[in-house]
Simulated scan of single mutants.
Amino acid sequence: MTAQRACAVSELEQDTPLRVVLDGVPIAVVLDSDGEIHAIGDTCTHGDISLSEGFVEGKTLECWAHGSAFSLDTGKPLNLPAYEPVPVYVVQIDGDDLLIDPQLTKDVPVA
C-alpha cells in the first residue's frame, strides 16, 4: 500500500481534529499549536467513540465522551478509562497535500 491523499494541509485548523477515512480506516488528523501535523486512529479504545469530535490540548487529543486523553505522538492513553493505545500513522506532505498510508503505522516505543 502507498500513501493516499487525506486532505489539503490548508484545510487543517490549528487544534481542531479532522476525521478522514482511508481504505475504511478512520483517522484523526491534528495540526497542533506548534504547527506539527499528527495522524492517529480516530476510534477511542475505551468506548468506540470518534476522537476527532474531541478536544486538542498541547500534544493530546481527548475523547469527548469519557475524558481519556491520547498522546498525539505515541497514541498512548494518558489517563483512564482507556488503557489501550490507538495507532499513530506516518504523515507525508507533498505541496499542499497531506498523505497518509492507512497500513503504515509509526513504531512507537513501549516504555
Rank of each mutant, 00 (worst) to 15 (best):
residue 103 Q to M: 01
residue 107 D to P: 01
residue 78 L to D: 00
residue 67 G to F: 09
residue 8 A to K: 13
residue 89 Y to H: 11
residue 20 V to S: 09
residue 97 D to P: 03
residue 97 D to T: 04
residue 67 G to P: 12
residue 76 K to P: 03
residue 21 V to G: 04
residue 55 F to Q: 08
residue 96 D to T: 10
residue 15 D to E: 14
residue 48 D to K: 12
residue 89 Y to V: 02
residue 42 D to M: 03
residue 5 R to G: 04
residue 32 D to A: 07
residue 88 V to T: 06
residue 30 V to C: 01
residue 27 I to E: 04
residue 8 A to R: 14
residue 57 E to L: 09
residue 65 A to Q: 12
residue 12 L to D: 03
residue 87 P to G: 07
residue 108 V to S: 03
residue 64 W to K: 09
residue 104 L to I: 08
residue 76 K to C: 10
residue 20 V to R: 10
residue 23 D to M: 08
residue 86 V to E: 05
residue 69 A to I: 02
residue 64 W to E: 13
residue 72 L to C: 04
residue 108 V to T: 08
residue 98 L to Q: 03
residue 79 N to L: 14
residue 82 A to T: 06
residue 94 D to V: 11
residue 66 H to M: 14
residue 100 I to Y: 03
residue 72 L to H: 04
residue 95 G to R: 02
residue 45 T to G: 08
residue 46 H to G: 11
residue 92 Q to A: 15
residue 54 G to F: 08
residue 110 V to I: 13
residue 106 K to L: 14
residue 14 Q to K: 15
residue 36 E to C: 08
residue 22 L to Q: 07
residue 12 L to R: 04
residue 75 G to T: 02
residue 110 V to Q: 07
residue 104 L to Y: 07
residue 26 P to N: 12
residue 81 P to F: 05
residue 98 L to S: 08
residue 100 I to H: 00
residue 48 D to W: 12
residue 30 V to H: 01
residue 71 S to P: 05
residue 27 I to A: 02
residue 27 I to N: 01
residue 3 A to P: 00
residue 80 L to C: 12
residue 54 G to T: 07
residue 51 L to V: 07
residue 1 M to P: 03
residue 7 C to Y: 12
residue 7 C to M: 14
residue 61 L to N: 01
residue 24 G to D: 13
residue 97 D to Q: 15
residue 68 S to M: 08
residue 43 T to S: 10
residue 36 E to R: 13
residue 6 A to H: 09
residue 21 V to E: 15
residue 81 P to E: 08
residue 67 G to I: 11
residue 38 H to I: 05
residue 105 T to M: 01
residue 40 I to Q: 00
residue 46 H to Q: 11
residue 91 V to Q: 02
residue 85 P to D: 02
residue 27 I to M: 05
residue 88 V to I: 05
residue 1 M to F: 02
residue 40 I to G: 02
residue 89 Y to A: 07
